[in-house]
């Protein structure tokens, strides 16, 4: 082989090796930039998640306060007014009737005390979730049923994991509250069926009602504003998926499946 050929070969080989090493460096630099972007995105997602948790907490508390306000006005307020009227109508000269009225007033007062105790429990607001998601759902159902307008059934299917995720519990609980709010405000339903299930690291919450339903495939802006957007957004934040099945006159079924804990 001529000297010039060998020289060319050596130069090319050296250059290939140099480019090889430079390629490794370029790859590390580019990957590092991606790593930076990934870390930034993760931090941003964490911030969004924390903001959403804070917002959810606030909403749960707000809903609790609304329920308490309504209950004080509609229930305890009425009971105490009735107690006052009963006590005012007592005629001291008629001891038998007076005794009956005093007993009625005592009964009304005891009912008021019982209602106040229930309210006290509700005042704990989002702390309900700390007691466990299932317990919080039962509590919510109890309040919904008190109006006497709805018959709510609850099925707790499958053991939840021993270690829970309070943040996810709170968001799932808030989603349920929003679904129930929708049922109360828009659905005109009489029966509600709630099912909470857990299988293979996945939590499933299903809410069915026998309300008037809607065309799930063709939602207009008003219907979208019925908290459905919020439900989907919140489920997305905890890595969950929402499926809505509804037809006019055939009720609605909403299913949320999310990885858990």
């Amino acid at each position: 082989m001529a000297n010039t050929d060998i020289t060319g070969l050596i130069i090319i080989t050296t250059l290939i090796f140099l480019i090889g090493a430079a390629f490794v460096l370029a790859y590390i630099l580019i990957y590092n930039q991606r790593k930076k972007r990934h870390i930034e995105e993760k931090a941003q997602m964490k911030l969004t998640f924390e903001a959403e948790i804070a917002k959810t907490q606030l909403e749960v508390q707000e809903q609790t306060m609304q329920t308490i306000g309504a209950d004080l006005h509609d229930n305890i307020g009425q009971l105490l007014s009735l107690t006052s009227l009963t006590l005012n109508s007592i005629e001291v000269g008629k001891p038998v009737k007076a005794r009956e009225k005093i007993d009625a007033a005592i009964d009304l007062t005891l009912r008021s005390i019982k209602e106040m105790r229930l309210l006290g429990k509700l005042l704990q607001g989002d702390q309900l979730v700390v007691m466990g998601l299932s317990e919080a759902i039962r509590h919510e159902i109890a309040w919904m049923e008190r109006s006497g307008k709805y018959k709510v059934s609850y099925e707790d299917d499958g053991e939840l994991p021993a270690v829970n995720n309070p943040d996810k519990d709170l968001i799932i609980f808030r989603i349920l509250q929003e679904i129930l709010n929708n049922i109360i405000k828009h659905a005109g339903a009489t029966r509600v069926r709630i099912k909470l299930g857990y299988t293979d690291g996945s939590l499933q919450l299903q809410v069915n009602d026998n309300g008037k339903g809607f065309d799930a495939g063709n939602l207009d802006a008003v219907q979208r504003g019925m908290g459905l957007f919020n439900i989907q957004k919140r489920a997305g934040i905890i890595g969950g998926e929402v499926s809505i099945a509804s037809r006019p006159g055939k009720g609605t079924s909403i299913t949320i499946i999310t990885p858990y804990p």
Binding site: L9, T13, T14, F17, G20, A22, L25
Partner: peptide, 12 residues
């Protein structure tokens, strides 16, 4: 960069 490219020189 030095030692990797240097390997090419060592071959020859």
């Amino acid at each position: 960069l030095f030692y990797f490219t240097n390997t090419a020189c060592i071959i020859f």
